[in-house]
Simulated assay, not measured.
Amino acid sequence: MINYIARKLIPALNIQPYIPNYSKAVEHFIPHVGGKPVLDELQRTLGFSDEAMEASRMTLYRYGNTSSSSIWHGLAYVEAKGRVKKGDRVWQIAFGSGFKCNSIIWRAMKTVDYDDSYPWTEEIVGFRFRLI
């Protein structure tokens, strides 16, 4: 609030908007895969690393824009990579048409071990992070 007020009252100081460090609050960020421009802007605006965006970018690569259901493909990706540990927080955020938006943060109750029933199992070894 102080940042906002200072920016409005003293524009000559050119104070930048405050952006919280979300990576301190969650270990895994899985946004809706609305396309590369959407992912690029979310990453830039929220300050997430390339690694944090990997699940969504790989979901876009493999499945395309599957609307808000893409957050479940992204969750399956981080689980198949063996990245979800007990106590980790996973932030899923999905957008729909119009003004629809949903956001939830899950806490892992146990470490998710590799399981051959994941939808990514057959291909996960071949996927390496790359900017899409």
Rank of each mutant, 00 (worst) to 15 (best):
W120K: 09
H28N: 05
R128P: 05
K100N: 13
E79K: 12
V38L: 14
T66Y: 01
T66H: 01
A76C: 11
D88Y: 06
H32C: 08
K36Y: 05
W106R: 00
L46I: 07
K24P: 06
P37E: 08
I19V: 15
T111Q: 02
E79H: 10
E123S: 13
L9S: 12
S68Y: 00
T59R: 01
V84C: 05
I93Y: 04
Y118D: 15
I30H: 08
W72P: 02
W106Q: 08
L131P: 04
Q92C: 14
M53H: 00
M1D: 14
L9W: 12
G96W: 07
A94T: 03
A108D: 04
N21H: 12
G47E: 07
M109T: 09
M1H: 14
V26C: 11
M1N: 15
F95V: 10
Y22L: 11
A25S: 11
E41P: 02
S103V: 03
F129T: 10
E41K: 15
Y4N: 14
L9A: 13
W72I: 03
P31A: 09
Y118N: 15
K24H: 10
K110G: 01
I15E: 07
L131I: 13
S23R: 13
E123R: 12
T45P: 00
P31V: 04
A52M: 10
M109Y: 05
D50W: 04
I124M: 13
F127S: 01
T66W: 07
I15W: 01
Y63L: 02
L42R: 04
P119G: 14
S97E: 10
R107V: 12
S49R: 07
A55G: 08
V90Q: 02
W91T: 02
I5D: 07
G64Y: 01
F99I: 12
N21E: 15
L9T: 11
M109R: 04
L42M: 15
S117G: 03
G96I: 10
H28C: 03
M58Q: 14
M1Q: 13
S117Y: 04
I2P: 08
V33R: 06
N21V: 13
I19H: 07
F29R: 01
I5S: 09
Y118P: 03
R128C: 09
A25Q: 13
G82I: 11
D88W: 06
V26T: 06
E54L: 01
W91V: 05
D115T: 14
S69R: 00
I19Q: 13
A6P: 03
W72Q: 03
M53F: 04
Y118L: 03
K100G: 15
S103P: 02
A12P: 08
M58P: 00
I105V: 15
T45N: 14
P17Y: 05
F129C: 09
L13D: 07
I2Y: 14
Y61S: 03
E27W: 07
H28K: 02
I93S: 11
E79G: 13
G64E: 00
V78Q: 10
G96A: 10
P119M: 15
V112E: 09
R83L: 15
E122L: 11
I105N: 05
N65T: 08
H73G: 01
L9D: 00
L39H: 08
A94L: 06
K85A: 11
E79F: 09
K24M: 03
D116M: 08
N21P: 00
T59M: 02
L60M: 06
S68V: 06
P11N: 11
